[in-house]
């Protein structure tokens, strides 16, 4: 092996090493891009496979022991608010819901608001509403079937169902009256144009 061949061999090895290093760098960069772009939490926060599809069957009882069936609310805009009296964001958004509900008395078309009680006792919910106002129907979900049917893991969550019984919107986290008014107006305008 002469000097030239030694140098040539060293050059080939160096070239190969830099190629491997570049390839590894590209793979790591691709992983990084995939991690940044995928961001599953954000993607799932606003979406649900239920959107645009018929709402799940909901049959339960209300806090004043009456039967509740979502299918019997056809023809009305329905809003479900998944709620727990000990959850801080639920308590924070409550005044917004009270204001929204009050405004629905004169709204055209009005939206029916229902609180879906999530992992909470009747007495705690009654005490909360007596102290904080909120004269709308509260629906029990003792076995969690309504929460699972809608894919609700944490409260508060708010869902809007159109008069045909199709799920139209999902809000994760606390809502405001302004946000609800704006989104409902958009939905109702689109619904009337259908």
């Amino acid at each position: 092996m002469n000097e030239e061949s030694v140098l040539e061999s060293a050059s080939v090895h160096g070239h190969r090493s830099s190629l491997i290093a570049t390839a590894v760098g590209i793979i790591v960069a691709l992983f990084f891009v995939v991690l940044v772009v995928s961001s599953p939490e954000d993607r799932e926060s606003a979406t649900s496979p239920l959107l645009g599809n018929p709402a799940p069957v909901v049959k339960s009882t209300t806090l004043d022991d009456k039967q509740f069936e979502l299918s019997r609310r056809r023809g009305s805009w329905v809003m479900f608010n998944f709620f727990n009296s000990t959850c801080v964001p639920c308590r924070q958004e409550h005044p917004e819901l009270v204001a929204f509900h009050a405004a629905q008395a004169t709204a055209e078309p009005p939206t029916e608001l229902y609180s879906i009680i999530n992992d909470d006792s009747d007495n705690a919910v009654r005490a909360f509403f007596e102290a904080n106002d909120g004269d709308w129907t509260k629906v029990r979900d003792d076995d969690g079937s309504i929460a699972v049917a809608f894919g609700v893991a944490k409260v508060p969550e708010t869902w809007i169902i159109d008069p045909n019984g199709y799920v139209r919107l999902r809000f994760i986290g606390a809502v405001t009256k302004g946000l609800l008014d704006e989104k409902l107006a958009e939905l109702q305008a689109a619904f009337e144009g259908m």
Partner: peptide, 26 residues
């Protein structure tokens, strides 16, 4: 469990996990 880190629904006692367990049982 959708609200815990690394726990299965089988193990977890979180509300969401209990709801899922009930649904599976149903």
């Amino acid at each position: 469990c959708p609200t815990c880190d690394g726990e299965s629904v089988f193990v977890s006692q979180a509300s969401a996990a209990v709801n899922i367990k009930n649904e599976v049982a149903r």
